[in-house]
Design a protein around this nucleic acid. Structure first.
Lengths: 196, 196, 196, 196
DNA sequence: AATGAATGAGACTTCATTCAT
DNA sequence: TATGAATGAAGTCTCATTCAT
């Protein structure tokens, strides 16, 4: 029950996330994951069939947390523009504050492991059939304030810049302060909003 | 003399590009590169000090070709908006027609190999000190039609969506026809153009 | 529990000593050491960082045993001459009975591996700062029966002939029986003793 | 005829001697020998069947030069003691001035390559059946000033200390000045001379 | 005769996975 | 249930040797 008495499986997942994010899948020997998690190598294979399954499990954990964070920041009472800016802002902030999660996702999606998940992308078409806040916004009632574009373009204009900026932030090329985040969200909105 | 009688070094580079793009650096044993290139393993080490140097050499080859393609599509007589759309269009088209190059670059930049090149990003700050067409546009005379934003944001709004869409195109989620490309370029422009 | 159930690390060390002595460092592939030791290749790397470390470990093992053998043969009650002859005799006998150790040491000292240990030479300046029986004899109270010579010359006149003879013995050119050993020890003593 | 127009075979031999002495047989790739010699790799194989044959050829060259140097320093008119000291002195001086030759010989004799030549030792039983100055001295007319010892012991007391000191000299542990050489030669003589 | 590009056997080393304890 | 010693397949790289030019 206590913090130190976590599920052994969770200990492994957190250790794996850290290692994978810092060193990449291929530079993270299972033995290293084990010692970082404070468990024996063999134990990893009790909870996960093999290294691949562990990688997918880390993805599921990270993705769930991200979905939850975004969903939590929804506010149905806001206007389309405000809600969009709010969602973008919280997504950027969450990932900027959780660089390991971001690095892991980047690596996962650009590797053979993420091939299957390509359709699901960062936030779109969340697992379990539940739609996601962004897609709701693009096609819900508030969509009348948007230009009529294909979904992939909405997604590209929304997530593309975010990912790009987060990479720069990780590299230390840019600091994602509130002003910049605000500018980013507004620019994205301008890209997809209906002409007035 | 014949077309098939290329430089052995080039044979290796092309084979490596193909393998790396399809399988990733870590799933492309040197022995496999060699047999795809139709040369002996040892020959690869005649031309490249080690696998790392080969990877960097492939990058240089791919990056040079990309730079050339973009530069060739410049047209100084166009207005800011038209030039921007033209540049974005040719970048998308080039990378969509050269998926191996795109996959390679994605992988390269998100790996330790590309760490040094982070600053230089896809097109920005091209090697050799020569500035690049996009940066010229963001800060040249035509920049008065743009909102005043920090460079990283210009770059994010321009390249972020492109990269995102190209990934979707590779996954077969979207077809980058002329209409979609035009919509993309215009949306990006709207994101960064000065309010009228 | 049984005698054959030694430390796996020792199994490897003994196998390595044998191979190195017979075939030399460069003609003893790790795979061969492994199969001679009856372990998997990977196991060697569990106990030793790399082949170099294994080589140094074999040296330490061999050198320790040699030091112990010589020290055990000391007898402080003997006169200078008698003690010298006793030490030389036991050194020759030990190395003649342990040809693999001798071959290993020869090879080790004349290779880059032994470069650091050059100063320490066969017996001189034993590790751990403790002086060695020979040096004690050259400079202790009994030294008055010796000519006044620089240390390197004492060492050369003592160990040089021993090494030379041991090589001949290994080659089968000579048999190191008691008589020859006695003659050798006396000749060495005559080389360094004070004129009467 | 000119110095630069040497036999190509000699160019290779000298380059090989240098490389082997400095880096050892196993760290001297044939390609490196070739470039040091200023010839193509293939040329080495015109003059020497393979690397082993080259190594043996270098030995022959070095050994011949050494024999010649010693023989040249003979002086039949000297007394036994004086001649011995003269021979030892010139041997030490020659090898101390030719460290590459010494290093090569050390390496050669302590490797599988020198296994066959074990009988011939440094100077003893020179090739071609010609006896050598030291052996002549040990068993010729002047031998009456010597104790009656087996040949291997004469050799051991003569060459053992020399080799030992030369190693120390190479390591920089000792400087072989005239005084030390004289002391060495005299000590060796005392080891084998007849009791007076 | 001379060259050096090309080759591939073989060396060292890593690491995912198993299994006896 | 948990462990970690043991394994060997597979990867990177070197270098002696060949052979077409």
């Amino acid at each position: 029950m206590s913090v130190t008495q976590q599920n052994k499986s969770d200990l492994i997942l957190y250790a794996a996330l850290e290692q994978f994010a810092e060193n990449g899948f291929h530079s993270s020997p299972v033995s290293q994951l084990a010692s970082l998690a404070g468990v024996g190598v063999g134990s990893i294979y009790r909870y996960f069939k093999d290294k691949d399954e562990l990688i997918h499990a880390v993805f599921t954990m990270v993705d769930d947390a991200l979905q939850k964070a975004i969903t939590a920041s929804m506010n149905p009472e806001l206007s389309g523009r405000s809600e969009f800016i709010q969602l973008v802002t919280s997504l950027i902030q969450y990932l900027d504050k959780h660089p390991q999660e971001f690095k892991f996702l980047e690596q996962y999606y650009s590797s053979p492991y993420g091939a299957d998940k390509k359709r699901a992308k960062f936030l779109c078409e969340g697992r379990g059939g539940s739609s996601n806040p962004f897609v709701d916004l693009f096609f819900g009632n508030k969509a009348k304030s948007l230009k009529d574009l294909p979904l992939p373009l909405y997604l590209a204009m929304t997530f593309g810049p975010i990912i790009f900026l987060l990479r720069d932030s990780l590299s230390g090329l840019v600091t994602l302060d509130e002003a910049l985040i605000q500018q980013t969200a507004e620019a994205s909105w301008n890209a997809i909003k209906a002409e007035n």
